[in-house]
């Protein structure tokens, strides 16, 4: 097997990504990256009482980018948006295991996708009564 260990979490999440797809009527969308840099991540969240009850993603990018978003959705499901915001790219890397340094940006982009989605939620959410 090539540049990633066959049994690594990266390969596991690349070949069996969790939570792929879109959510109908999502409460938040995080869209980061662009075709120019070779990575695009779309994160969809369903949020109830500030709890992320569902998360789905679509990613255009390399194996590490796909794996990073997959891990992210697993990490944030069931968490409050405040807890979720504490999840950093480092945490994603901890789950994925060893990766070459030039792949770190994939995990950074996943973190940015989450931040963008929560920002989107805050903008959309109606002010407290």
């Amino acid at each position: 097997m090539g540049c990633f260990d066959e049994n690594s979490e990266i390969m596991e999440h690349f070949f069996h990504p969790r939570n792929v797809g879109k959510i109908d009527n999502p409460d938040a969308i995080g869209h980061v990256g662009n075709p120019k840099c070779g990575d695009i991540m779309d994160l969809y969240l369903k949020i109830k009482d500030n709890i992320i009850i569902d998360a789905k993603f679509q990613t255009y990018g390399c194996a590490a980018a796909i794996a990073s978003t997959s891990v992210l959705t697993e990490l944030i499901k069931g968490k409050s948006i405040y807890e979720a915001l504490k999840i950093s790219n480092k945490k994603i890397r901890e789950v994925l295991g060893e990766m070459p340094p030039h792949k770190y940006h994939c995990t950074v982009l996943a973190e940015q996708a989450l931040k963008a989605a929560i920002e989107d939620y805050k903008n959309l959410a109606s002010p407290e009564p």
Partner: peptide
């Protein structure tokens, strides 16, 4: 619609 390296990694497998 697909990034080249992801295709390469899957074909490699």
């Amino acid at each position: 619609g697909i990034e080249g390296e992801s295709m390469l990694i899957e074909l490699d497998a």
